[in-house]
Design a protein around this nucleic acid. Structure first.
Lengths: 340, 340
DNA sequence: ACACGGAAGTAACGCGCGTTATTAAAGCGC
DNA sequence: GCGCTTTAATAACGCGCGTTACTTCCGTGT
């Protein structure tokens, strides 16, 4: 059927087979507004497409229309569930606009990152999403300025690029609030590295919730767990070995791995979760949270939603529309399981 | 600089700026063999490229060369670490050939899968990788036959397509062997759903290792844990509550989540890992294995290696070379941590 | 009879590039 | 001086498609 050497069916083949010109085929394929095609002709063409098994060549179409349809997504690491969720969200949202996502991992290596960026620009992406595994400041190679760019889970050190961030403060607030609602008044916070945005924001929310409940935050109940299970284990031991009455009855952990460490400390002391000590985690790492015993109540980082929102903003930017907000925050939902 | 309306620098711009023809620019860009370009001319052209910030248009290049440079990767779910590892492996290998990966998630939905496949074919992928999250049989839409296809972590129900699978048997063998070497002779196997390839293969390897050590496998030591932490917990309880002497001193679990359940059962009984009971997992889910206490010795599913190998095979197929093996198995490395 | 307007469809150009065939200039032996 | 080969570079075509401008045909009104 196909007459060219690549053996692929082209629009001309369809046109010939339907007895019309290639232009007409193009018109029905694109539902060109303002051009009326009689039903009979349209039918013949669609039939020919079907019979020949014609597939439009996306590359050629992009070239002719000067519109690639690509969005790029650069992420540090594809391994680990986070990137996957961002991809899922972005991909499904992009689909709606008949767009495709070009995904590349930098593996944290600036050289690979630059190479990925180059490739994306050569593929004429119409927008770029840059996602990190943890909330922090980044600064992108200047090539990223050639195309609309939105940061996901990170913010521009120069403050120029728009970004989408998890609402850490409201997350911390919700965690503490949940524990307060369960009747706890002495709530320990085993925090991440105190210098990073997640730790700062969550502590702020935690303290706000306490104050709202008429409790003055006790700084001695806040201990850094350094984002590891071992660090959190040590921190939890310190808190739990306080004299009864001074000992916290609930622990809010900076992430789920740390909650794992806290669980061990609690169980070692013969204490029961949540009866003696309640625990709330953060991140909702399914593999941990859903399989700890008892299952862990935790806050989810809204990676999928952030991915979706990222494509939203990119679509707006690519269409030349101005952004309503330069810095968007997305809520962290509380997932109730059995540890409170 | 650019004279066309899209405001993008094209090869013609470079040619004009360097005072040569577009053809010459194309020749230096592609290092055309058989065509000699004087150093002086080459220098002028490269300089012009640099000054103008020219980037080749990958789409146009693909169209003209009739070679898209794309490989497609369809996976069920991007969330979860497995897909990420496949992507990482495939991506890095593809990079070497200056190829790009087109990634799509089917979310287990046949409609989405078909749509993704269509999109890939419209983008003229030169090969297709189809990866699943767990080892099983699949059957692909016939459109997948239009292009070289390799299955990753699954095999064709019709037995036609080439595939890459983890070596479950050798994995089971290594796990049991490791425990035997540590002096254990009564080794419990808390298996996955007994009907799936992973369970069958691993059990086979486990029994072979026992026989090699002169031990007759005791079927009563093999209990299905149904791939959940709770199921494994129950199974472990059953094994551990046997009378002393009849009780296994080591547990080989079908996956790391199940090992989590086993840990709980062991710790509840006041037993110590690995002193009283040794544990080996499977899958190496970092989030679990590396953060359990003690850290879990387990076997890794070689997702990254399978991704790499997949691109290897695809590259060969796309180049028209025959495959040496239709069904490739990749070794599962044993990761020693502290539970044996 | 004529002009006119809409319907149906097409020829032709260009998107940015790879590639082949061809030209123009330069070197070389006699 | 002439023919011949090598070097340096280009004109021109086509990849598959979107799009504009144009043609042809037919029915309608006067």
């Amino acid at each position: 059927m196909a007459t060219n050497k690549s053996q692929r069916v082209t629009m001309s083949d369809v046109a010939r087979h339907a007895g019309v010109s290639r232009t007409t085929v193009s018109f029905v394929l694109n539902d060109k507004p303002g051009v009326a095609i009689p039903d009979e002709t349209r039918r013949r063409i669609l039939e020919a497409i079907d019979e020949l098994g014609y597939r439009p060549n996306a590359g050629a179409r992009a070239l002719a229309a000067n519109r690639s349809g690509w969005f790029g997504l650069i992420t540090e690491i594809v391994t680990g569930p986070f990137a996957g969720e961002v991809i899922t969200g972005a991909q499904s949202r992009a689909w709606g606009d008949r767009r495709f996502l070009l995904i590349a991992a930098s593996e944290g290596d600036p050289a690979q990152e630059a190479a990925a960026l180059d490739q994306m620009l050569e593929h004429r992406v119409e927008g770029l999403l840059y996602a990190t595994t943890w909330h922090r400041a980044v600064s992108l190679p200047k090539a990223a300025r050639e195309v609309p760019t939105v940061l996901v889970n990170c913010y521009d050190a120069q403050g120029e690029l728009p970004c989408i961030l998890p609402d850490e403060v409201s997350g911390g607030y919700k965690a503490a609030r949940r524990l307060l609602d369960a009747g706890h008044t002495r709530i320990g916070l085993i925090n991440l590295d105190p210098a990073i945005p997640a730790a700062i924001g969550r502590r702020e929310g935690y303290e706000r919730a306490l104050r709202e409940a008429g409790i003055t935050p006790d700084p001695s109940l806040v201990i850094p767990g350094w984002a590891t299970a071992d660090g959190a284990y040590t921190a939890a031991c310190e808190l739990l070995d306080r004299p009864a009455g001074d000992r916290p009855t609930a622990l809010f952990c900076g992430n789920d791995r740390m909650a794992m460490g806290a669980y061990d400390a609690i169980k070692e002391r013969g204490l029961r979760i949540p009866h003696d000590v309640a625990v709330v985690g953060f991140d909702n790492q399914e593999l941990i949270a859903a399989y700890l015993r008892p299952k862990l109540t935790t806050l989810a980082l809204p990676f999928e939603a952030m991915g979706t929102k990222g494509v939203d903003m990119l679509a707006a930017l690519a269409a030349g529309q101005p952004l309503d907000t330069h810095r968007v925050t997305v809520d962290c939902p509380l997932l109730e399981r059995s540890s409170v």
